[in-house]
Amino acid sequence: MTTSQSPTGLPSAAPSGLLDGLETRPSQVWGAVRLVPLVRAEAIHDLRLHPRIHDGPGVVDLGGQRRYLSYIPHGFVAEWTGDGSPAAAYGTQLTDGRPEQEVPAMRLHFHRRMARREAKRRLRFLPLHLALEGYLSLHFNGPAVAWEQWSQRALRQGLSPRVEAAYLGTEIPGLADALRVFEIHPGQCGVLVHLADAPATAFVVPHPDDYRTLHPTLLQDLYGDLVHHYATLMPSVADFRARIADTRIRSLADLREAAVEQTARWADFHDTTMASGLLEQENTWQQVRRMGRFTLSRFLPPFRPRQDNHIGEAITDEHGRTVYLKTFRLSENQVRRGHLLSRLAAHDWHLADTAAELGLTEAQLGLRLETAGFGHLLRQDVLDHYRSRARAGHR
Protein backbone atom coordinates (compact mmCIF):
# COMPACT_ATOMS: atom_id res chain seq x y z
CA MET A 1 0.00 0.00 0.00
CA THR A 2 1.37 3.42 -0.95
CA THR A 3 0.29 6.81 0.30
CA SER A 4 0.61 10.00 -1.67
CA GLN A 5 0.59 13.76 -1.17
CA SER A 6 0.64 16.67 -3.54
CA PRO A 7 2.70 19.77 -2.63
CA THR A 8 -0.50 21.24 -1.17
CA GLY A 9 -1.03 18.20 1.03
CA LEU A 10 -4.01 16.87 -0.94
CA PRO A 11 -4.18 13.16 -1.82
CA SER A 12 -3.05 12.19 -5.31
CA ALA A 13 -2.76 9.02 -7.36
CA ALA A 14 0.28 6.90 -6.50
CA PRO A 15 1.79 4.31 -8.82
CA SER A 16 0.36 0.83 -8.53
CA GLY A 17 3.83 -0.70 -8.83
CA LEU A 18 7.29 0.69 -9.47
CA LEU A 19 8.05 -1.75 -12.30
CA ASP A 20 4.57 -2.13 -13.81
CA GLY A 21 4.80 -2.57 -17.57
CA LEU A 22 8.43 -3.73 -17.42
CA GLU A 23 9.84 -7.23 -17.75
CA THR A 24 13.15 -8.40 -16.33
CA ARG A 25 15.74 -10.26 -18.38
CA PRO A 26 18.56 -12.53 -17.11
CA SER A 27 21.18 -10.60 -15.17
CA GLN A 28 24.75 -9.95 -16.31
CA VAL A 29 27.59 -10.08 -13.79
CA TRP A 30 30.95 -8.31 -13.62
CA GLY A 31 32.75 -8.84 -10.31
CA ALA A 32 30.44 -7.57 -7.56
CA VAL A 33 28.21 -5.73 -10.07
CA ARG A 34 24.98 -7.35 -11.27
CA LEU A 35 22.89 -5.56 -13.90
CA VAL A 36 19.31 -6.72 -14.49
CA PRO A 37 17.87 -5.39 -17.78
CA LEU A 38 14.30 -4.06 -17.78
CA VAL A 39 12.41 -4.33 -21.08
CA ARG A 40 9.12 -2.80 -22.20
CA ALA A 41 6.76 -4.75 -24.42
CA GLU A 42 5.67 -1.40 -25.89
CA ALA A 43 7.78 1.76 -25.67
CA ILE A 44 6.37 5.14 -24.57
CA HIS A 45 6.46 7.45 -27.60
CA ASP A 46 4.84 10.67 -26.35
CA LEU A 47 7.39 11.35 -23.57
CA ARG A 48 11.12 11.44 -24.28
CA LEU A 49 14.20 12.19 -22.14
CA HIS A 50 17.62 13.49 -23.05
CA PRO A 51 20.62 14.58 -20.95
CA ARG A 52 21.92 18.06 -20.33
CA ILE A 53 25.53 18.05 -19.19
CA HIS A 54 26.51 20.53 -16.45
CA ASP A 55 29.89 19.06 -15.44
CA GLY A 56 30.59 20.86 -12.19
CA PRO A 57 29.27 22.18 -8.89
CA GLY A 58 25.93 23.91 -8.88
CA VAL A 59 23.82 26.11 -6.64
CA VAL A 60 20.14 25.15 -6.58
CA ASP A 61 17.62 27.84 -5.65
CA LEU A 62 14.66 26.26 -3.87
CA GLY A 63 12.82 29.55 -3.35
CA GLY A 64 12.10 31.27 -0.07
CA GLN A 65 15.78 32.22 0.33
CA ARG A 66 16.71 28.53 0.51
CA ARG A 67 19.66 27.28 -1.55
CA TYR A 68 22.09 24.42 -1.47
CA LEU A 69 25.40 23.55 -3.11
CA SER A 70 25.99 20.18 -4.72
CA TYR A 71 27.96 18.50 -7.48
CA ILE A 72 25.49 18.24 -10.38
CA PRO A 73 27.05 16.46 -13.37
CA HIS A 74 23.93 16.35 -15.51
CA GLY A 75 20.23 17.08 -15.74
CA PHE A 76 17.39 15.48 -17.68
CA VAL A 77 15.08 17.28 -20.09
CA ALA A 78 11.64 15.72 -20.57
CA GLU A 79 9.56 16.52 -23.64
CA TRP A 80 6.01 15.35 -24.20
CA THR A 81 3.13 15.91 -26.60
CA GLY A 82 -0.39 16.90 -25.69
CA ASP A 83 -2.19 14.55 -28.08
CA GLY A 84 -0.25 11.33 -27.54
CA SER A 85 1.66 11.63 -30.83
CA PRO A 86 5.32 10.54 -30.91
CA ALA A 87 7.89 13.00 -29.56
CA ALA A 88 11.57 13.24 -30.47
CA ALA A 89 14.21 13.81 -27.81
CA TYR A 90 15.03 17.52 -27.69
CA GLY A 91 18.73 16.86 -28.29
CA THR A 92 18.12 14.99 -31.57
CA GLN A 93 19.30 17.42 -34.24
CA LEU A 94 21.83 17.68 -37.09
CA THR A 95 25.16 19.41 -36.43
CA ASP A 96 28.23 20.22 -38.46
CA GLY A 97 30.40 18.07 -36.18
CA ARG A 98 32.57 20.90 -34.88
CA PRO A 99 33.40 20.52 -31.15
CA GLU A 100 32.31 23.24 -28.77
CA GLN A 101 34.93 25.65 -27.48
CA GLU A 102 36.49 24.32 -24.30
CA VAL A 103 36.35 26.39 -21.12
CA PRO A 104 39.62 26.14 -19.14
CA ALA A 105 38.09 26.94 -15.74
CA MET A 106 35.35 25.12 -13.84
CA ARG A 107 32.12 27.05 -13.98
CA LEU A 108 29.47 27.31 -11.27
CA HIS A 109 25.98 26.61 -12.58
CA PHE A 110 22.88 28.18 -11.07
CA HIS A 111 19.65 26.18 -11.23
CA ARG A 112 16.24 27.59 -10.45
CA ARG A 113 14.52 24.85 -8.49
CA MET A 114 14.78 21.10 -9.00
CA ALA A 115 12.21 20.92 -11.78
CA ARG A 116 11.80 23.92 -14.05
CA ARG A 117 9.46 24.25 -17.01
CA GLU A 118 11.48 25.56 -19.97
CA ALA A 119 8.68 25.50 -22.55
CA LYS A 120 5.03 24.53 -22.71
CA ARG A 121 5.88 20.84 -23.06
CA ARG A 122 9.50 20.72 -21.90
CA LEU A 123 10.70 20.25 -18.30
CA ARG A 124 14.29 20.30 -17.00
CA PHE A 125 14.94 18.44 -13.74
CA LEU A 126 17.97 17.25 -11.83
CA PRO A 127 18.02 13.43 -11.55
CA LEU A 128 18.13 12.10 -7.98
CA HIS A 129 18.25 15.63 -6.56
CA LEU A 130 14.46 15.64 -6.44
CA ALA A 131 14.61 12.53 -4.27
CA LEU A 132 17.50 13.77 -2.13
CA GLU A 133 15.79 17.10 -1.53
CA GLY A 134 12.78 15.18 -0.22
CA TYR A 135 15.04 13.37 2.26
CA LEU A 136 17.08 16.42 3.30
CA SER A 137 13.98 18.54 3.83
CA LEU A 138 12.39 15.89 6.07
CA HIS A 139 11.08 17.87 9.08
CA PHE A 140 13.66 20.51 8.16
CA ASN A 141 12.07 23.25 10.29
CA GLY A 142 12.89 21.36 13.47
CA PRO A 143 10.85 21.22 16.69
CA ALA A 144 7.19 22.09 16.18
CA VAL A 145 6.78 22.84 19.91
CA ALA A 146 9.36 24.72 22.00
CA TRP A 147 9.88 22.02 24.62
CA GLU A 148 12.49 22.93 27.21
CA GLN A 149 15.05 20.35 25.98
CA TRP A 150 15.55 21.97 22.57
CA SER A 151 18.27 24.55 21.99
CA GLN A 152 17.64 28.06 20.72
CA ARG A 153 19.52 27.12 17.56
CA ALA A 154 17.09 24.27 16.94
CA LEU A 155 14.09 26.57 17.42
CA ARG A 156 15.54 29.33 15.19
CA GLN A 157 17.29 27.34 12.43
CA GLY A 158 15.73 23.90 12.60
CA LEU A 159 17.94 21.28 10.93
CA SER A 160 19.88 23.80 8.85
CA PRO A 161 22.35 22.89 7.52
CA ARG A 162 21.63 19.28 6.52
CA VAL A 163 24.56 17.52 4.87
CA GLU A 164 24.71 14.06 3.30
CA ALA A 165 27.61 12.50 1.40
CA ALA A 166 27.45 10.15 -1.59
CA TYR A 167 29.80 8.51 -4.07
CA LEU A 168 29.93 9.19 -7.79
CA GLY A 169 29.33 6.18 -10.01
CA THR A 170 32.88 6.43 -11.35
CA GLU A 171 34.10 5.57 -7.83
CA ILE A 172 32.13 2.30 -7.66
CA PRO A 173 34.58 -0.55 -8.45
CA GLY A 174 33.59 -2.47 -11.57
CA LEU A 175 30.59 -0.32 -12.52
CA ALA A 176 32.27 1.45 -15.44
CA ASP A 177 33.48 -1.84 -16.92
CA ALA A 178 30.07 -3.46 -16.44
CA LEU A 179 28.24 -0.63 -18.21
CA ARG A 180 30.80 -0.68 -21.03
CA VAL A 181 30.81 -4.39 -21.85
CA PHE A 182 27.30 -5.57 -21.00
CA GLU A 183 24.77 -6.10 -23.75
CA ILE A 184 21.82 -3.70 -24.12
CA HIS A 185 18.77 -5.81 -24.90
CA PRO A 186 16.29 -4.99 -27.68
CA GLY A 187 13.51 -2.94 -26.13
CA GLN A 188 15.52 -2.26 -22.96
CA CYS A 189 14.19 0.78 -21.14
CA GLY A 190 15.85 0.39 -17.76
CA VAL A 191 18.13 -1.51 -15.43
CA LEU A 192 18.35 -2.69 -11.83
CA VAL A 193 21.87 -2.26 -10.44
CA HIS A 194 22.92 -4.63 -7.65
CA LEU A 195 26.26 -4.34 -5.87
CA ALA A 196 27.29 -7.51 -4.01
CA ASP A 197 23.65 -8.58 -4.67
CA ALA A 198 22.33 -5.63 -2.65
CA PRO A 199 19.93 -3.45 -4.71
CA ALA A 200 21.70 -0.13 -5.29
CA THR A 201 19.51 1.72 -7.79
CA ALA A 202 16.73 1.31 -10.32
CA PHE A 203 16.75 3.36 -13.52
CA VAL A 204 13.84 3.43 -15.99
CA VAL A 205 13.16 5.66 -19.03
CA PRO A 206 10.26 5.82 -21.51
CA HIS A 207 11.91 4.67 -24.76
CA PRO A 208 14.75 2.27 -25.75
CA ASP A 209 16.50 5.07 -27.67
CA ASP A 210 16.45 7.19 -24.50
CA TYR A 211 18.02 4.34 -22.56
CA ARG A 212 20.85 3.91 -25.05
CA THR A 213 21.58 7.63 -24.77
CA LEU A 214 21.30 7.78 -20.97
CA HIS A 215 22.94 4.42 -20.18
CA PRO A 216 26.38 6.06 -19.55
CA THR A 217 24.88 8.60 -17.13
CA LEU A 218 24.68 5.84 -14.50
CA LEU A 219 28.37 6.60 -13.93
CA GLN A 220 27.49 10.21 -13.12
CA ASP A 221 24.75 9.30 -10.64
CA LEU A 222 25.06 9.26 -6.86
CA TYR A 223 25.40 6.08 -4.79
CA GLY A 224 25.24 5.63 -1.04
CA ASP A 225 28.22 4.65 1.09
CA LEU A 226 26.62 1.30 1.97
CA VAL A 227 26.56 -0.02 -1.60
CA HIS A 228 29.98 1.52 -2.27
CA HIS A 229 31.41 -0.50 0.63
CA TYR A 230 29.66 -3.63 -0.65
CA ALA A 231 31.18 -3.21 -4.11
CA THR A 232 34.62 -2.51 -2.64
CA LEU A 233 34.85 -5.15 0.06
CA MET A 234 32.67 -8.06 -1.07
CA PRO A 235 33.86 -10.83 -3.43
CA SER A 236 32.48 -11.44 -6.91
CA VAL A 237 28.88 -12.59 -7.01
CA ALA A 238 27.69 -15.80 -8.61
CA ASP A 239 26.54 -15.76 -12.22
CA PHE A 240 23.33 -17.78 -12.11
CA ARG A 241 22.88 -19.68 -15.35
CA ALA A 242 19.74 -21.25 -16.74
CA ARG A 243 19.59 -25.04 -16.83
CA ILE A 244 17.04 -27.00 -18.81
CA ALA A 245 16.72 -30.74 -18.22
CA ASP A 246 17.19 -32.50 -21.57
CA THR A 247 15.02 -35.44 -20.51
CA ARG A 248 11.85 -33.40 -21.10
CA ILE A 249 12.90 -31.99 -24.49
CA ARG A 250 11.54 -33.94 -27.45
CA SER A 251 11.01 -31.16 -29.99
CA LEU A 252 11.66 -27.51 -30.75
CA ALA A 253 8.26 -26.73 -29.21
CA ASP A 254 9.36 -28.39 -25.96
CA LEU A 255 12.59 -26.36 -25.98
CA ARG A 256 10.70 -23.13 -26.65
CA GLU A 257 8.27 -23.88 -23.81
CA ALA A 258 11.15 -24.64 -21.41
CA ALA A 259 12.92 -21.39 -22.37
CA VAL A 260 9.75 -19.37 -21.74
CA GLU A 261 9.31 -21.09 -18.39
CA GLN A 262 12.90 -20.35 -17.40
CA THR A 263 12.50 -16.69 -18.41
CA ALA A 264 9.42 -16.42 -16.16
CA ARG A 265 11.39 -17.95 -13.28
CA TRP A 266 14.16 -15.40 -13.80
CA ALA A 267 11.64 -12.56 -13.69
CA ASP A 268 10.05 -13.93 -10.51
CA PHE A 269 13.47 -14.43 -8.88
CA HIS A 270 14.62 -10.86 -9.59
CA ASP A 271 11.30 -9.27 -8.62
CA THR A 272 10.47 -11.24 -5.48
CA THR A 273 13.96 -11.94 -4.15
CA MET A 274 16.63 -9.63 -5.51
CA ALA A 275 14.59 -6.40 -5.57
CA SER A 276 11.99 -7.16 -2.90
CA GLY A 277 13.31 -4.47 -0.55
CA LEU A 278 12.70 -1.81 -3.19
CA LEU A 279 9.45 -3.09 -4.64
CA GLU A 280 7.67 -4.04 -1.42
CA GLN A 281 8.39 -0.98 0.74
CA GLU A 282 5.42 1.28 1.59
CA ASN A 283 6.26 4.68 0.14
CA THR A 284 4.95 8.16 0.81
CA TRP A 285 4.59 10.02 -2.49
CA GLN A 286 4.60 13.75 -3.21
CA GLN A 287 3.68 15.30 -6.54
CA VAL A 288 6.23 17.75 -7.96
CA ARG A 289 4.86 18.68 -11.39
CA ARG A 290 2.06 17.74 -13.79
CA MET A 291 3.19 17.14 -17.38
CA GLY A 292 0.11 16.59 -19.52
CA ARG A 293 -1.00 13.01 -18.87
CA PHE A 294 2.19 12.41 -16.87
CA THR A 295 3.11 13.32 -13.28
CA LEU A 296 6.59 13.87 -11.84
CA SER A 297 6.74 12.76 -8.19
CA ARG A 298 9.20 11.73 -5.50
CA PHE A 299 8.85 9.25 -2.67
CA LEU A 300 10.21 8.48 0.78
CA PRO A 301 10.36 5.07 2.50
CA PRO A 302 8.96 4.26 5.96
CA PHE A 303 12.55 4.28 7.36
CA ARG A 304 12.60 0.69 8.60
CA PRO A 305 15.75 0.06 10.69
CA ARG A 306 17.97 -2.79 9.48
CA GLN A 307 16.02 -3.17 6.23
CA ASP A 308 16.36 -1.90 2.67
CA ASN A 309 15.17 1.70 2.35
CA HIS A 310 15.14 3.57 -0.96
CA ILE A 311 14.25 7.13 -1.83
CA GLY A 312 13.43 7.98 -5.40
CA GLU A 313 11.63 9.96 -8.07
CA ALA A 314 9.34 8.85 -10.86
CA ILE A 315 7.25 9.99 -13.79
CA THR A 316 3.98 8.08 -14.06
CA ASP A 317 1.17 8.11 -16.62
CA GLU A 318 -2.52 8.61 -15.95
CA HIS A 319 -2.86 4.92 -15.00
CA GLY A 320 -0.06 5.08 -12.41
CA ARG A 321 2.40 3.10 -14.54
CA THR A 322 6.06 4.02 -14.24
CA VAL A 323 7.51 5.87 -17.25
CA TYR A 324 10.68 7.19 -15.56
CA LEU A 325 12.28 6.00 -12.32
CA LYS A 326 15.50 6.63 -10.43
CA THR A 327 16.18 5.44 -6.88
CA PHE A 328 18.88 5.82 -4.21
CA ARG A 329 19.48 3.29 -1.42
CA LEU A 330 19.96 4.90 1.98
CA SER A 331 22.69 3.76 4.36
CA GLU A 332 21.80 2.47 7.82
CA ASN A 333 22.86 5.79 9.36
CA GLN A 334 20.64 7.71 6.95
CA VAL A 335 17.74 5.38 7.74
CA ARG A 336 18.34 5.90 11.46
CA ARG A 337 18.26 9.68 11.06
CA GLY A 338 15.06 9.53 9.03
CA HIS A 339 13.47 7.16 11.55
CA LEU A 340 14.32 9.39 14.52
CA LEU A 341 13.01 12.53 12.81
CA SER A 342 9.80 10.81 11.75
CA ARG A 343 9.06 9.48 15.23
CA LEU A 344 9.84 12.86 16.85
CA ALA A 345 7.53 14.64 14.42
CA ALA A 346 4.78 12.09 15.08
CA HIS A 347 4.94 13.04 18.81
CA ASP A 348 5.25 16.82 18.26
CA TRP A 349 8.95 16.59 19.16
CA HIS A 350 8.19 15.56 22.76
CA LEU A 351 11.25 13.56 23.85
CA ALA A 352 9.63 11.53 26.64
CA ASP A 353 6.67 10.41 24.49
CA THR A 354 8.96 9.51 21.58
CA ALA A 355 11.30 7.58 23.87
CA ALA A 356 8.38 5.62 25.31
CA GLU A 357 7.25 4.54 21.83
CA LEU A 358 10.78 3.41 20.96
CA GLY A 359 11.19 1.55 24.26
CA LEU A 360 13.97 3.88 25.45
CA THR A 361 14.57 6.25 28.31
CA GLU A 362 14.63 9.94 27.54
CA ALA A 363 18.39 9.99 28.15
CA GLN A 364 18.96 7.10 25.76
CA LEU A 365 16.95 8.86 23.06
CA GLY A 366 18.92 12.07 23.60
CA LEU A 367 22.20 10.21 23.16
CA ARG A 368 20.87 8.50 20.04
CA LEU A 369 20.11 11.92 18.62
CA GLU A 370 23.68 12.96 19.35
CA THR A 371 25.08 9.82 17.68
CA ALA A 372 22.89 10.49 14.64
CA GLY A 373 24.37 13.97 14.29
CA PHE A 374 21.50 15.91 15.88
CA GLY A 375 23.17 16.70 19.19
CA HIS A 376 23.18 20.43 18.37
CA LEU A 377 19.37 20.40 18.59
CA LEU A 378 19.53 19.80 22.36
CA ARG A 379 20.51 22.33 24.98
CA GLN A 380 24.07 21.71 26.18
CA ASP A 381 23.07 21.32 29.83
CA VAL A 382 20.37 18.81 28.88
CA LEU A 383 22.82 16.82 26.77
CA ASP A 384 25.40 16.83 29.58
CA HIS A 385 22.71 15.55 31.95
CA TYR A 386 21.90 12.69 29.58
CA ARG A 387 25.59 11.77 29.37
CA SER A 388 25.98 11.71 33.15
CA ARG A 389 22.95 9.46 33.50
CA ALA A 390 24.39 7.11 30.91
CA ARG A 391 27.70 6.95 32.76
CA ALA A 392 25.93 6.32 36.05
CA GLY A 393 23.96 3.51 34.50
CA HIS A 394 27.19 1.69 33.54
CA ARG A 395 28.66 1.81 37.02
Rank of each mutant, 00 (worst) to 15 (best):
R107L: 15
R107S: 14
L108H: 04
F110W: 02
F110D: 00
M114P: 00
A115H: 05
R116V: 03
A119S: 04
A119F: 05
A119T: 01
L123V: 07
L123E: 11
R124S: 02
F125W: 11
F125L: 12
F125V: 03
F125M: 12
L126T: 06
L130S: 13
A131I: 05
L132I: 08
E133V: 09
G134T: 07
G134M: 03
G134P: 05
Y135H: 12
L138T: 06
L138A: 02
L138C: 06
L138K: 05
L138N: 02
F140A: 03
G142V: 11
G142T: 04
P143C: 09
V145D: 11
A146H: 13
W147M: 09
E148R: 15
E148T: 12
E148K: 08
Q149C: 05
W150N: 09
W150Y: 08
W150R: 11
S151K: 08
A154Q: 05
A154S: 03
R156K: 07
Q157L: 06
Q157T: 01
Q157E: 04
Q157N: 04
G158P: 14
L159D: 05
L159Q: 02
L159I: 06
S160E: 14
P161Y: 00
P161W: 01
V163H: 10
E164Q: 10
E164H: 09
E164S: 15
E164L: 11
A166P: 10
A166E: 13
Y167A: 12
L168A: 15
L168P: 13
L168W: 14
